[in-house]
Design a protein around this nucleic acid. Structure first.
Lengths: 241, 241
DNA sequence: ACAAAAGTGTTCATTATACACCCATGT
DNA sequence: ACATGGGTGTATAATGAACACTTTTGT
């Protein structure tokens, strides 16, 4: 079970609820002789173990942080700059962990999507917290760059493929779908136009079922059929935008 | 100048001319006692050297094959399956090069775009040839998968960003632009509609100049301004298709 | 009765698609 | 004069964007 010293994965764990999009970060604090030298935040990552592929490594990291194993996961980019761990603080940090972190580590970036209300990081890891995507703290290593790239890729993906459903319960309402999409994309949509568009998608199927126990008109319940989606999707061919 | 034994780059070199899209492949032939054991094709790749990032490694590989240094290059995916070099032929191959190829090599995939008429691979490397994308030979390692992924990513990129201009001369005609786009995307566009769309793009600017010496109505010459493109591009926000 | 979210339709502007003829040049 | 690719316009369909009121339920 040896680690590969120059290869790691970094997980950008996006947390979504109906209001906003956030990222799970770990506090990195260096103390010496009881004094705090510095403190900032980093992504969750780990070296790849021999005989393991990077996806399995990412799954392992995710499980260790969130406790869950079946999380939506997407590889988005590999970071290999020779000085990506070369910030002032990073050098000091690495000097204190010479056995753990090589000078030049290539890191494969994965992002994942979780329901931020379903995970209370505080229980398992005291120094792990959610940060809203538009209000990030100071970040160690090249993790700011990694998060930016992840966000960009996530949004492209969400716009072109039905990944929001990875996060919705099997049965959902149109409002839930809209709020989730809005939170991830950082925008808002007109409610009527959104429903019109969704109504045209044959893969989003109304059940014979309504919300119960809500203090307003109960909403129609829908499911998403990946099967129907694959069969009915029409890819538009575009030159460029 | 030591190589990192478990890290490599693979370059999917796409060659475009006005008719088709092809990939540059190297013949891999294993002979023993003067007898050909097998022969198939692989991508061009190489291990990463210590102190080098993966992009520089890819540039190095490209230069060694094509002779050019300033080639459009895009990282698209990292391949890390533990048995990605584990085909029957691959095992035999590796047994004959135990010093060169580790059992588990993570490979960062880059694709590049070159004018296939500008490169005559035969001169420099006898066993390097162009193969049309829809008629590939038998491929070693996991290189079929790598090419498929590269093609998918290239087409998405070409549809959404102005990468075709990386391949066009500075001054070009609309026909050239159309033929290139068609070759890369593997489709055809209506000539009038294509021109209409292009006409709306402020970044494609007509010069006060025409083709000369052609046996037909000389075409208008255009240039592409990346600057204008960045300023005038409007990103559409979409839920999904 | 009131609060809270669900649900619904029309108009207008933009964009996509399909399609056929004349033009300028070199040989 | 002919062959070759360049250049153009219109009608129809589909899609996107803007916008306000009624409905159903729980309290």
């Amino acid at each position: 079970m040896n680690i590969i010293p120059n290869l790691s994965v970094d997980c950008v764990i996006f947390g979504v609820n109906s209001e906003n999009l956030s990222v799970l970060l770990v506090e990195r604090e260096l103390t010496k002789d009881g004094e705090v030298l510095f403190s900032d935040h980093t992504l969750t990552g780990h070296h790849v173990i021999e005989g393991e592929n990077t996806e399995d490594a990412a799954i392992r990291v995710l499980k260790s942080i969130t406790g869950f194993e079946n999380i939506y996961l997407e590889q988005f980019y590999t970071f290999s700059d020779t000085n990506r761990l070369g910030g002032k603080k990073d050098i000091i940090w690495r000097e204190n962990f010479p056995h753990k972190i090589a000078e030049h580590v290539i890191s494969v970036g994965y992002y994942s999507l979780v329901d931020s209300t379903a995970i209370c990081p505080d229980e398992a890891h005291k120094n792990v917290h959610w940060f809203p995507i538009d209000n990030l703290p100071e970040l160690g290593f090249d993790h700011k760059e990694i998060i930016e790239k992840a966000l960009e890729q996530l949004r492209i993906k969400v716009m072109h493929e039905p990944v929001v459903f990875e996060l919705l319960p099997e049965k959902f309402t149109i409002s839930q779908l809209q709020k989730l999409s809005e939170a991830i994309l950082g925008t808002t949509f007109d409610r009527r136009n959104f429903r019109k568009k969704v109504g045209q998608m044959k893969s989003i199927i109304a059940l014979d079922e309504k919300q119960k126990g809500v203090a307003h008109k109960p909403a129609q319940i829908y499911i998403f059929s990946k099967d129907v989606y694959e069969r009915t999707r029409k890819e538009k061919l575009i030159f460029f935008y």
